[in-house]
């Protein structure tokens, strides 16, 4: 300690201090910053495969280096999560232009999707694909998830995620068939008309709560057939179609009974 004190006026002391300070901030940042790069180690081979797939299937619209073209977004910095969401739900590659890209049977298998994601992630840092733990509905709190869903999601996706209309033919899709991972990724990356809910806005735990709430909805309604969970319009339609239909049928039957 004495030796340290003796050298504190050494002319190199400020430089050493500065280096130490930089090292500490850098270290803390590295430890605490959200891991933007893909957590899994990706091999350069993957990236190379991904690049080839990209150039064959995506570059027509997104540009040879994913820099984007007129009206087509750049993919630099969108992250692996965005690629995985778009490709694994079949939205990309897009089949036809329209108000929005629609989910369809996926065109790439898991391996190719992962390679594409690795390639795009290598272009610039972005949200990584969530881990299985992050999207595990069993660990989430459905009650909190519902409260969050009601405030942040229900105005477009309907109270229980049955989907809803947006302007000019766009729509918020139903979430009942969507995988937990895709739900999480959608919140993280905000595809198409959807806003981004980053980790500061809705924390990873809260995102898991929302996933838990949506998974709970798949169990159906305690009251019987959920009728699409679309609310009073579908209830009214069924009241006429089934209820009044049966009752008028019954009235005709009773009326036809010989008096």
């Amino acid at each position: 300690m004495k030796a340290l004190a003796a050298r504190r006026h050494h002319r190199l002391a400020p430089v050493v201090l500065l280096l130490l300070a930089l090292l500490t901030t850098g270290g803390i940042y590295a430890a605490l910053a959200p891991s933007t790069a893909n957590a899994e180690t990706v091999s350069t081979a993957d990236i190379e495969t991904g690049k080839k797939l990209f150039q064959a299937n995506c570059a027509t619209c997104h540009g040879a280096n994913a820099e984007g073209t007129d009206g087509v977004p750049s993919l630099v910095g969108v992250g692996a999560a965005a690629v995985d969401f778009q490709v694994s739900t079949g939205r990309m590659p897009m089949q036809m232009s329209g108000p929005q890209a629609q989910a369809k049977p996926r065109q790439f298998g898991d391996e190719d999707t992962a390679a594409l994601a690795a390639y795009v992630a290598s272009l610039g840092a972005g949200p990584a694909i969530p881990t299985d733990d992050q999207v595990d509905a069993a660990q989430g709190d459905a009650a909190n998830g519902m409260a969050l869903f009601r405030t942040n999601c229900a105005m477009c996706h309907n109270a229980v995620g049955a989907g809803g209309a947006l302007s000019e033919g766009k729509f918020a899709p139903s979430l009942w068939e969507t995988s937990e991972r895709n739900i999480y990724q959608a919140m993280l990356t905000g595809p198409q008309s959807m806003p981004v809910f980053n980790d500061a806005n809705i924390t990873p735990d809260e995102k898991r709560d929302i996933v838990a709430f949506l998974v709970e909805q798949r169990e159906g309604s305690a009251g019987g057939n959920a009728l699409g969970s679309l609310g009073p319009v579908s209830e009214g339609l069924w009241a006429f179609a089934i209820g009044l239909g049966l009752l008028i049928g019954a009235a005709v039957w009773i009326g036809a009974k010989s008096s």
């Binding site: 229900a154 105005m155 009251g223 019987g224 009073p232 319009v233 209830e235 006429f240 089934i242």
Partner: peptide, 30 residues
Amino acid sequence: MGATMSINNVWNYGPFDPSPVSAGAQPDWY
């Protein structure tokens, strides 16, 4: 109908709070 078809599952909508409105908010048919 009451036994087999669910109607007005209020827990889907949650307790009233003036701020949220969900998509597909409609009154009964009449």
